[in-house]
Amino acid sequence: MKKKFLSGFLSIILGLHIILCPAFTFASAPPEIIPNSNNSFVFPSLKDGVSTLSRMSVPQLNSYISSVAQRDMAVAASTSSSNDTAATIIDVRLALYAAGLIAQKVGFPCAGRILEHSALNIDYTESNGAIARAIQNSPSYEAWKSTSNDSITFEIASDGLDLFLALHWVSVNVTGSPSSSRIRIIDTFNFDPKFFKQPSIINAINDIGWLSQKVYLLSEIEIQIDIVS
């Protein structure tokens, strides 16, 4: 069941790269990033994969995702060379990490960062970073500043899809004086088996995210964002 799920998931990842970057070649790659063999990358560990993928361009990242998926499909269809192996959980997690890197470059900087961290099972913490700036520029945050609420909800219509999908409902903790305060926003990245009152596509996102958690492709992580005056 897990193997079938991984293969299906690789189909999904391949679909992503096709839609996002239909035209790419290795000819555009920086010379210092060289595929391992047969024009594919097989990393022995998450650490090795992160080190290499973090230096890649979007076309190279898409090529990596494609290589993982194609290699696994070839193994499944018994058309691969004898050296190829089926995708492991590390391979798919790195593919999700690569998807997070791509997302940051194609208009989803907040969601991409969180996806990247979840794929690596690393809590996300920042102070006055990219997500903090996105929050400060959002209408919901601007409206919140004149309230005494300890929770904010970010919505697609007002704050945009990227911020909504990165955070949605968050707790807010304010410390210090109004002129020198720290605003700490806390959230947890995870999915719940029961979910309602959202558009059906969001339910689909939640369902796939829940399944990803079940096979440890994505992990529940804590998010802490400080806005420091």
Binding site: T153, H168, D187, I205, L218
Partner: peptide, 17 residues
């Protein structure tokens, strides 16, 4: 499904009220 899913598999999707 996937472009939205993978780009947006994030905290917001699991929250509800």
């Amino acid at each position: 499904l996937l472009p939205v899913v993978l780009l947006s598999a994030c905290a917001g999707a699991g929250d509800w009220s």
